[in-house]
Design a protein around this nucleic acid. Sequence first.
DNA 1: TATGAATGAGAATTCATTCAT
DNA 2: AATGAATGAATTCTCATTCAT
Lengths: 216, 216, 216, 216
Amino acid sequence: MKKSPGTLSRAGQRRQREKEGRREAILKAAMTLFASEGYNQASMEHIADEAEVSIGTVYINFKSKEEILAHLMDEIAYEIRKIVGDNFRTVEDPYEGMRKSGIAFMTEFCQKYPEKIIILYRESVGKSPLLEAHREKMHKQLVADLQGAVETLKEKSGFRFRSGLSSEIIATCIGGMYERIAYQFIIWQNRTDELDEASEEVVDFIVGGVNSLRMK
Amino acid sequence: MKKSPGTLSRAGQRRQREKEGRREAILKAAMTLFASEGYNQASMEHIADEAEVSIGTVYINFKSKEEILAHLMDEIAYEIRKIVGDNFRTVEDPYEGMRKSGIAFMTEFCQKYPEKIIILYRESVGKSPLLEAHREKMHKQLVADLQGAVETLKEKSGFRFRSGLSSEIIATCIGGMYERIAYQFIIWQNRTDELDEASEEVVDFIVGGVNSLRMK
Amino acid sequence: MKKSPGTLSRAGQRRQREKEGRREAILKAAMTLFASEGYNQASMEHIADEAEVSIGTVYINFKSKEEILAHLMDEIAYEIRKIVGDNFRTVEDPYEGMRKSGIAFMTEFCQKYPEKIIILYRESVGKSPLLEAHREKMHKQLVADLQGAVETLKEKSGFRFRSGLSSEIIATCIGGMYERIAYQFIIWQNRTDELDEASEEVVDFIVGGVNSLRMK
Amino acid sequence: MKKSPGTLSRAGQRRQREKEGRREAILKAAMTLFASEGYNQASMEHIADEAEVSIGTVYINFKSKEEILAHLMDEIAYEIRKIVGDNFRTVEDPYEGMRKSGIAFMTEFCQKYPEKIIILYRESVGKSPLLEAHREKMHKQLVADLQGAVETLKEKSGFRFRSGLSSEIIATCIGGMYERIAYQFIIWQNRTDELDEASEEVVDFIVGGVNSLRMK
DNA sequence: TATGAATGAGAATTCATTCAT
DNA sequence: AATGAATGAATTCTCATTCAT
């Protein structure tokens, strides 16, 4: 008994659920292995094993290994943009928004998902032209978001920056600061518990930096 | 006619020069190829070709591909520490020193040797446990230098920081800012000519940031 | 139509057969090449070609070249122990058993499978620590079998040996005699047809030797 | 002041001595390394280092690595033939000669020079066609010597063997017995101290074996 | 759709031998 | 004669991707 097109039979729904479950399992396995062994060392066979599917199934869901990493990068970037954006917009005062979003990034993202930090800042770096292009696009978005926030700050506070370049510089600097703090405290050293404290200082540093580029 | 031990015949001197020349050629070739094609894509055969020596000769000089990259990293780190350190110490006022050294890094290093920036910030990232350890050590030194400068600043200016963590946070942030600025302007976008302008703003940002972590 | 777990579809059975066929083909190719060109000279590519599979397939079946040789050694040792053991046990009189098994080794094994003799006595010698350890274990088993036979002989005949070492010495000597006879007549010289005659004399030599170590 | 041809100046004599010393050093180094690391693993560079000469000097003295091993094999074979032959001829009674020479081989050669046993029975096996040919020639001589001794025994004792093949079979068996006893007790197990005891039993085994091939 | 055996290009590394000095 | 840097062919092994079932 065929259903009308567009709807799915119960069995079809189950298959659909299973299919998505498999896709999720593959992404999860890949994230775990990329973070623990490194992108190059984690073979497709290993990923398939970890996800409890066959290699073939991995290729049904993703057309290449690169694509898996690209997908993970997108997911991670989306989460970060969401956390940062939501926290920025929650409060009225944009200075407070910067503080809040920075601290949220550190304590609600970095501290909770260290593997994602490893993927973002270590395992996606310098892998291939395609992935590097993807990474560039991703960072461009993050910087654009930050720049937007800086512009908002400027407008709401009614000041001007030293030059047309300033807001981009600021946004880029902020991105770099968070990256290196996370890299040092999470990837190299195991000081995740100090991130609360650190993030407080980082946001103050940022606010001080931003203000020093104000005209007058 | 035997020379006294320790000195070399003219012919010996020439051979010695040739030997060193070959070593340099290999490093140069590796740097060029790592920067243009990426570490993984640049095969030892390719490097040997580019250096106009045989594969065997590469292995006489470096015991593995990893070692070549480690050597390049050391060289680059040494140059950066020298440029930054020299410029910091040239002037009396440590604020001025920070400005000067930051601008020097951007204009005398990044602008002139983009391949070194690529090696440092892209091609050495996440390659292997050994190289990652090397990279950590390298960054630790750079951060230690920066932290030293920040401490000097603090002492000469006679203030205190908010916490014992502050100077480390500041140094780490500075490292991250320069990294990402260089990455964006040199590796991803071709805006090397804007680095002069950008670096001025970055150093001001830094000074503002540092001051905002001062006690009181 | 799904089969119950544990059974295979006809197609699955065929695939299973093909898989095993490939494994056999690889072992056969390796045996042939190790015997004709030598273990070191026979490259994995060469083996794969001879077996009409790809190099990758060789590595699916055996994790290294060493493992292929180790496997061949095991197979050969198993066959020898079987032939020798079966023939020894077929007859009641242990003297007759020694004669029969020795002659069987020569005429039913050495004469028929000269490549196996080459692998066993030439190509597995001194290749690597791992293989040497494997070889030691293998020979220890063969000697233990022979020693068991000698002990049986002793007990059934109701005599004692000169010392506690005697049966081990005898077993070791027997192993060495067969080895060298096979090496000389099969590997170095092409006198396989004389092995019938030779083995008769060897077994008599052995019987005489054994008796000369009897007490009294 | 040129000396007449055929004589050497003092300096020339010294150079000659040094040259021979170097050759000896190379052979000694090669023996040590072949025995400890194996023929394939011992590189020419390693041998040169151990002999405290350059690679070039090794090649002045021996035209290839194979030749070094061939030379060592010759030396070892010569020593064995000398020890065995001298001991056989020392006594009148050929049975006693067999006993004496066998025991001498075990206690004066195997026990004292385990590296030579390793070279002879392990490291020279199955290396290359050339070396295998060399090895065959060497063993043929050893077997011929043994066969000569067996023939002497036969003639002095005034008996005949079962067949024309007998003396060759006996000689070959003897060679194999000593080989395997030495391999087991020296190379695989560290029971060099038991060789005294073992060799006594081996020679009795041999005598018993020889007699069992006597006609009637 | 799912499977996983098969593929084979590609990579790093070794080392006997040569030869200019 | 002695040196030892240079050579480069050869080898083992990996792994992303394909495709017949």
